[in-house]
């Protein structure tokens, strides 16, 4: 065997595997999105098996876009969740990475504590937050508000100040189980999990920052803020864009957290909506899937361009 064909052979398994993995399911999704295909239908049993004779053209897309009331809500909600998480993680990530980018006692331990949330499995993250922390009665959320109310009540018994505190309202804990608040719960828990990721990447990048340049800026009398704006931010431009895009891709397909936090209360994102459709209307599920792929690809193209550029260096 010539050397060249051996080299091809070594690459072949991974290329073939990934090609099959990508093409077959995606091809089927595309196909199902153009036919009428439902799992249970007594009136039209012929629709329960996929067949080209059930061709529906763009009908599934029209159904998803115009007739199903959930699609636009799911898109909006997906974008709200992804957008908020990205903004919060980048801000926290920048602040924390700059904060710990110095030598101080126990820095190693601080790093270990900070990075830990990133390794918690998503389903544990969701179960932990929604039950033990955010629950309005039994979670720390509920206990803290209850404690606060108790303190206020005790303060009302004070001789002089009591009248002042009796004007205060009794606080209500926020419930994170309603449609809108449960997406806030998802934002909180995922931000908690992914801020460490941003910190880690910004920190790695900060370590390669040109120290002499910073020292020169200090000698020139530049204050901390202008050093941050004019030196650190440009230096971190690429890591920031990478953090944004990687998170966009991961969080657009957020699933476990949504499933655990908001099952049954109407809060959904695109993957969850696809899951709902998949219990019966496969045509609609597939059309929604095609939209999800398009949305992810818009982000992916930018990310791949940056990665491709750094590959050339």
């Amino acid at each position: 065997m010539s050397n060249k064909s051996l080299l091809r052979l070594l690459q072949a398994p991974s290329i073939i595997l990934l090609l099959l993995w990508m093409l077959i399911p995606l091809g089927m999704t595309l196909y199902f999105s153009f036919i009428r295909y439902v799992l249970n239908n007594l009136r039209k049993p012929e629709w329960t098996t996929p067949s080209i004779s059930n061709w529906r053209g763009l009908g599934n897309y029209e159904y998803v876009l115009y007739k199903s009331k959930d699609f636009w809500f799911a898109v909006q909600n997906s974008l709200l969740i992804v957008g908020s998480i990205i903004i919060l993680t980048v801000i926290f990530g920048l602040a924390i990475s700059i904060l710990i980018n110095r030598t101080f006692p126990g820095r190693g331990i601080v790093r270990v504590l900070l990075i830990s949330p990133f390794f918690v499995m998503p389903s544990v993250n969701a179960v932990l937050w929604i039950n033990m922390i955010l629950d309005p009665v039994l979670g720390l959320n509920g206990l803290a508000i209850e404690g606060l109310n108790q303190i206020l009540k005790d303060l009302q018994d004070l001789p002089l100040l009591g009248r002042f505190f009796s004007l205060w309202p009794v606080f209500e804990p926020i419930s994170f189980r309603a449609t809108q608040t449960s997406s806030y719960a998802v934002i909180i828990m995922v931000t908690w999990q992914w801020t460490p990721f941003a910190v880690l990447i910004f920190m790695t990048s900060l370590q390669s920052e040109d120290q002499q340049q910073i020292e020169a800026a200090i000698l020139d009398g530049a204050n901390a803020w202008s050093r941050f704006i004019n030196l650190t931010i440009p230096h971190l431009a690429r890591p920031i864009s990478i953090v944004i895009m990687i998170q966009a891709i991961f969080h657009l397909s957020l699933y476990a957290e949504i499933e655990i936090v908001s099952r049954g209360n109407g809060n959904k994102n695109l993957p969850y909506l696809i899951g709902e459709f998949s219990s019966n209307n496969i045509g609609a599920a597939s059309a929604t899937g095609v939209f999800a792929v398009i949305l992810a690809n818009i982000v992916a193209i930018f990310l791949l361009r940056i990665v491709g550029k750094s590959l050339m260096e």
Partner: peptide, 14 residues
């Protein structure tokens, strides 16, 4: 890398 970016949910039923 681009295969990693396909949303899993899109191919759930297939």
């Amino acid at each position: 890398l681009s295969t990693k970016m396909l949303p899993a949910a899109a191919v759930l039923y297939p």
